[in-house]
Design a protein around this nucleic acid. Structure first.
Lengths: 468, 468
DNA sequence: GGGTATTTGTCCGTATGTATG
DNA sequence: TCATACATACGGACAAATACC
């Protein structure tokens, strides 16, 4: 019945335990039936009684058996229907993922591999670890470390014209996490969320995941179509006014004021996603919408992902005062979701001026790439396409004049030559995807690779076209 | 009676030895009276039997005690004249640190300030930073770094009996974030979520925040009342089977199987919150519910917050296969919310065996505190209260026999003496809060502080009572 | 039916190996 | 290397329950 191996690594009493457990679960030991007495089992297997007893005690602790003093151990009644048939032993993990290697990745969210300020970050991390390791034992401030929020507030005020105090700032683990929170705050009013079309697909997902009604509205040359917004039933507008994704336009001040008025008069909310405002390559950065109406119903969202590293998972919200009560009610006893260590490192990084310096450095770096991309585009398809949305961010949109090109084929062909394209249609909902729209992200490629990649892309496309 | 200091330089067995010797010499232990058995003393102080035995052997060697084989140790009869009157000099004087702000925080979520393995963690962090800084530029795997998930899988399989592959594991930023995800996955079915009452209030908040219908069900001696569950309309059950919060009971196997059956037959879901399974102070850790039915509808949730540091914000879910499609649909293009750097550091921490070692170390540490708390309780209110849910975790529940005590007053009075109590009623919903229930968390206090705090707490309470 | 021998859970002390620092 | 502590194994002593005469 029971088989014990004395040579096994697993202790005798554990072997006994698991075999008896198995017998009980599989029903071979009926409910309330007596188990062999401690002595019997010990004799039978030529082991100590205490060894058996240890096994029994373990089973007892987990409720498999019960004991009647001086009478015996008995199987706990497990209703037979409860008992599972097969206690399966699944094998080890499936080995996964062989990514086809792609040489030119034009995904708009790729960043420069060298740009991360490794040395300085290490120093900040170590300082944070050293200074604060005594403090790592309690759960910290729910909205994020005070020092970090202070630094964020200073930065936002100076560089983005955002007006707020630190109580309005919530540190969170990425844009999507921030939008999750916002969706929660707003959902009670059963909002209708107007989103840009084309627009940031991941933001749409968040709202949709929260079962909010999402209403895609067209994007004009000047950003979200405000006429359409006013005519709609929307109560919330998610916008990227400083640098529309993906089209790259800036919402002019007239539209901004109109948008603010829409919010104010209708009691509506604006979610301002300022995802890459640091990256403007000429002129001053566009001041934020929030700064125009600091007391309005505006949720401002920013991130460290683009400039510092997406691997850090730190972003932040600035909530309007009107949402603070709801925030406190819902989230006051949520723990923060960003590592305190990294929050402190980041606070120090900013406090010591590394952030400002790094922003400048990165801006120069990407401007060069941006320029290289434009040069390459001019050279390799200057006639056949026009560029939309240059001058900021980490990508541009290329509008091919030959509108007969199917996106799927384009992407597939590019893939074939080792080029990864992010399909424009991903950003669209209702708007029927214009044929010949191509998003080219340049953050992750070196200047040389940008040149090569563009050449390859339009060379192959040329071939494809001329083959027809 | 006997007091052991675990922080002391002097070995445990030596402390035992000298205290027993003192008791014998001073006549507090009568001649020929039996000493506590090796097992009893070991259990009582939660130390190994061998440690006690070493002390006894020393006493035996010096003739203070004799042993009757298989019967016990007994005090040697010493002629009274031989006994010295003055006990020997006490060791180094206790430093009487007069802390101005003497706050005793008995919150159950506090952890030891010194427990964080700073040096090793720094090394892992730096390695991760160094090796991976080239990789920090793109957004990483949505469910978490593969290496980390691999290590988690291995650990769960070995230590918790959880059966899964790494595709089922989702790394997230804390229990609440994990439950957020689960709530999303389940919400389409408009679930009714049964929760334990009393139970973990923060979990309830998450479900409520997602507008799920929350149904508090009573907790019996063996955990969630399954009869009530079956009679309810619930379609999801959130449970803490390995160590119910806050009552500390373990769900016996019969109930586990019944619960599994409830899920299987009704197509219902179980959320198994295994928040502190690492911290069991005697016997083996209770195997997980998930391992009993790996193909069932069980979401398993675990965390690194308790054992490593809550400041890290890393936890994980194991999703059942049935939820994977929904997860992919909703979250496949969410970025992960935990810093890639820390994920990698953690993966290395586990890979190199630091995690296992650290778990052991921490378990010992908290066991000592747990033991100290029980001793202090026995000394200061042994008659007036009984302890519930000891033997695991970071808190116990004290049931005061004087049930006329109002919780508010108790908490206020404690607060007045510099003691922070976490109100039991916080964990309750419908269940009318039993008067006289007190949750005492011992994680964040040193052994000395535990002793002082308990003394202070019950001293002040005594005064309060006698004043009436 | 009442005494008795046996069985049984439960307690006891003990020996050895091993992990840790 | 060595001290310390724990895990895993061991067999004996005892009293209550049980079976048997």
């Amino acid at each position: 019945m029971l088989v014990l191996s004395h040579d096994s690594q697993v202790p005798l009493y554990t072997q006994l335990y698991s075999q008896i457990k198995g017998a009980i679960l599989s029903g071979r030991f009926a409910a309330d039936s007596r188990l062999p007495s401690v002595r019997d089992l010990a004799r039978q297997h030529l082991i100590s009684r205490n060894t058996v007893e240890n096994a029994y005690l373990e089973l007892y602790a987990e409720g498999y058996i019960y004991s009647k003093e001086r009478s015996g151990y008995f199987v706990s009644p497990l209703s037979p229907d409860d008992v599972l048939v097969s206690p399966p032993a699944r094998g080890a993990a499936r080995e996964t993922v062989q990514e086809t290697q792609c040489l030119f990745d034009f995904h708009p969210a790729r960043l420069d591999a060298e740009a991360f300020p490794e040395r300085i970050w290490r120093k900040c991390l170590l300082d944070a670890l050293h200074r604060g390791s005594r403090d790592l034992n309690h759960y910290s401030e729910a909205q994020g470390e005070g020092t970090l929020r202070g630094e964020i507030r200073k930065y936002l005020e100076q560089s983005r014209g955002v007006v707020c105090d630190i109580d309005q700032i919530v540190v969170c683990g990425g844009l999507q996490h921030g939008l999750d929170i916002v969706a929660h705050l707003l959902k009670d009013s059963r909002p209708v969320v107007a989103v840009e079309d084309p627009g940031y697909h991941l933001a749409r997902s968040v709202f949709a995941n929260h079962s909010l009604e999402v209403l895609p509205l067209p994007v004009l040359d000047e950003g979200l179509d405000l006429r359409a917004l006013q005519d709609s039933r929307s109560t919330v507008a998610y916008v990227t006014p400083s640098h529309q994704f993906p089209m790259g336009c800036v919402m002019p001040i007239a539209n901004r004021l109109k948008l603010l008025r829409w919010a104010r008069e209708g009691g509506n909310f604006i979610i301002e996603d300022d995802y890459d405002s640091e990256l403007r390559y000429h002129g001053r950065p566009i001041p934020s919408l929030q700064g125009l109406d600091p007391d309005g119903n505006i949720v401002y969202s920013g991130t460290f992902s683009k400039v510092l590293s997406p691997a850090l998972r730190v972003s932040y919200l600035v909530l309007p005062h009107s949402l603070l009560p709801a925030y406190r009610r819902l989230f006051s006893d949520y723990a923060p979701s960003v590592s305190v260590l990294e929050q402190r490192a980041l606070a120090q990084f900013m406090e010591q001026g590394h952030w400002e310096r790094h922003v400048r450095r990165v801006r120069t770096l990407y401007r060069k790439k941006h320029d290289a991309l434009l040069r390459a585009l001019a050279r390799h398809c200057g006639e056949r396409a026009s560029v939309i949305g240059q001058g900021a961010g980490l990508h541009v949109v290329v509008q091919l004049h030959d509108t007969a090109v199917k996106e799927e084929e384009l992407v597939a062909a590019a893939r074939h030559s080792g080029i990864k394209l992010f399909p424009f249609s991903t950003t669209c909902v209702n708007r029927k995807p214009e044929e010949g729209m191509v998003i080219l992200g340049f953050g992750g490629l070196s200047i040389d690779r940008i040149e090569e990649g563009v050449a390859l892309l339009f060379q192959s496309q040329q071939k494809r076209i001329s083959a027809e």
